[in-house]
Amino acid sequence: MSRPSKPGDPRKVSTELFTLTYGALVTQLIKDYEDEQEVNKQLEKMGYNIGIRLIEDFLARSNTGRCNDFRETAETIAKVGFRMFLNIAPVVTNWSPSGDTFSLLLDPNPLTEFVELPEDKYKLNYSNILCGVIRGALEMVQLEVQAWFVSDQLKGDSSTEMRVKFIRKLEDAVPAGED
């Protein structure tokens, strides 16, 4: 399922190259760190660094203004953000009763095409980089959130579900001398 690049369009990269690159990255991290929890942490950190820059690209290209509430934020991430960068449309579900946590069902997941997780690596959250991206991007628009995977098709679950929880709103930095 590769997107063939249009002739003469240097910006489009085939999904296969992207999946291979990500896979090589995860494999190298496992070799370097050996412990799956540590690899999960590193993936999340890398995702965070991507997220803080990706948000600017997103804002520039999508021309969206501020979201009015958390539900709008969730819909914007799923319908505009994921579509823009990964060309998928995850479903927003499982809202908590207080409205501060939601789930994203990632189906299909372009990061895990053709990937099969070995039995001994069951603690690895293969797509953990996405959690970091969401956390980093939302932090730059003054929302502190926590993102984590609750199920993964790679581990044999029926769906790949990421949970995102609102922690608090970050106030703007006040310059010196102001109240």
């Binding site: 803080i52 820059r53 600017e56 690209d57 804002l59 520039a60 290209r61 021309n63």
Partner: peptide, 21 residues
């Protein structure tokens, strides 16, 4: 100004990992 942000700043600063923000 929006274009300046999107076409110049985002493209040449944000997307350059060696450029500290």
């Amino acid at each position: 100004l929006r274009q300046l942000y999107g076409q110049i700043y985002v493209e040449y600063v944000v997307k350059n990992p060696l450029c500290p923000l």
